[in-house]
Amino acid sequence: MSQAIARRRLGPGRSYPYGRIAGPLLLLAVWSAAAYGGLLDPRVLSSPGKVLSTAADLIAQGRLQTNLLISLRRALLGLLFGVGAGTGLAVAAGLSRLGESLIDGTMQVKRAIPALALLPLLILWLGIGEEMKVVVIALGVAVSVYVNTYAALTGIDSRYVELAEVVGLSRAAFLRKVVVPGALPGFFIGLRLGVTASWLALIVVEQINATSGIGYMMFQAQQYAQSDVIVVGLLVYGIFGFASDALVRAVERRVLSWRRTLAN
């Protein structure tokens, strides 16, 4: 009998099916055990059952859906404008020297100022309505998308540029065949960070001067010490944050199917 010699595998190996939700499920199990084992004071944190029944109540009253729709609309609009602006600015800065000198320095300065630090100024300019909320979200998203997309655009392998010159690609074909596909991985990193940034900004703007939305609902619950409603809000944020990231990942996997990385 001969023994096969296998090298120690340094890549992480195959991923488990549905492996990504194992962690959250474990967390849920621990929470249930603590709540039903009497280790948790309901005033500090409600049990999963109480949270579920509260969620059912909120749905029956229509409060959850209404607030959720408003929140989703803000997040989506902010994301849309942020991604558009971030990508547009990155393309302008990455592909033209004029754009680079005008935009990149400005964006680096903007990057150093957290979007939320601009809140007082934006409230002064735009009031406390929807525009202000969408703009705050869009600003945070735009910076994430810009920084990563710009880095990807300027980091295109010069050997590929040389190849494009040798085979005589037109400028348009060069952009289509080399620049865009080469920069897409960076864009997707920016997009995923942008999605995260949009939820973060949403939470903040909805707890300041808001009269609707999931964040407002949670803020109100805090006034009346309803920890179950707060947890429902957290769960909604968590579910949508998780789902949106999973969606971006799925799109990314499809678009970047040529890539072979540690991920698969």
């Binding site: 050997r159 190849l163 494009a164 040798v166 085979v167 005589g168 690609l169 596909p181 040529w258 890539r259």
Partner: peptide, 23 residues
């Protein structure tokens, strides 16, 4: 004029045929 490099320099995001007819 065609130039063959020391590395094959195929674009990783294009399938083989698209690489060959690039340009």
């Amino acid at each position: 004029v065609s130039l063959a490099f020391q590395d094959s320099r195929l674009l990783p995001w294009l399938r083989l045929l698209d690489n060959v007819v690039l340009g």
